Amino acid sequence: MSKTRATRRRPTDPLTLMVEMSVAAGQTIGHRSLMLALAAGDPAALGRPEFTRMVTEKMAVAAETGVQVASRLAAAQWGWAGWFGAQAQLGAAALAASPATTWQHWLTASTGQAAEMASG
């Protein structure tokens, strides 16, 4: 009696993973499209659990993606607003201070804000 042992797949490079995912997505879309086409004229067939799951899955992913996009956009907007505000303050300081001092303040504030925006 021989025992089969499950082999663990090695992680591959991102390009290979992307190609594999693209092929699998194409196969899944083709299969589901054919299922929908075959069931198109039959209301009972359209009530299959697979069709219901497809719709609920798509709605859940769309909602989750929308929340992620909205939160990232809000963070980016706050970052840009802070950067523009700091630029306005530096412009005002330029009128009152020496050019060297203004340049030093601008460089410090800009690089700090750019790093903050990039990490957020």
Rank of each mutant, 00 (worst) to 15 (best):
M1N: 13
T4D: 07
T4V: 13
D13P: 06
P14Q: 01
T16K: 09
T16R: 10
M18T: 15
V19H: 07
E20F: 05
S22I: 05
S22D: 10
A24L: 01
T28A: 15
G30F: 01
S33W: 00
S33Y: 03
L34A: 12
L38P: 03
A40C: 04
A40V: 05
D42N: 03
P43W: 00
L46A: 01
R48E: 08
P49M: 14
P49K: 14
E50P: 05
R53T: 08
R53G: 07
R53M: 07
V55T: 06
E57M: 04
A60P: 12
V61G: 04
A63D: 10
A63Y: 10
T65E: 13
V67P: 05
V69N: 04
V69Q: 04
R72G: 00
R72L: 06
A75W: 03
A75Y: 02
A76K: 13
W78G: 13
G79V: 00
W80D: 09
W80E: 11
F84N: 05
G85N: 07
G85R: 05
G91A: 02
G91P: 03
A94S: 06
L95W: 14
A97C: 15
S98N: 02
A100W: 03
W103P: 11
Q104D: 11
W106L: 15
T111C: 10
Q113C: 05
A114M: 14
A115V: 04
E116S: 15
A118M: 02
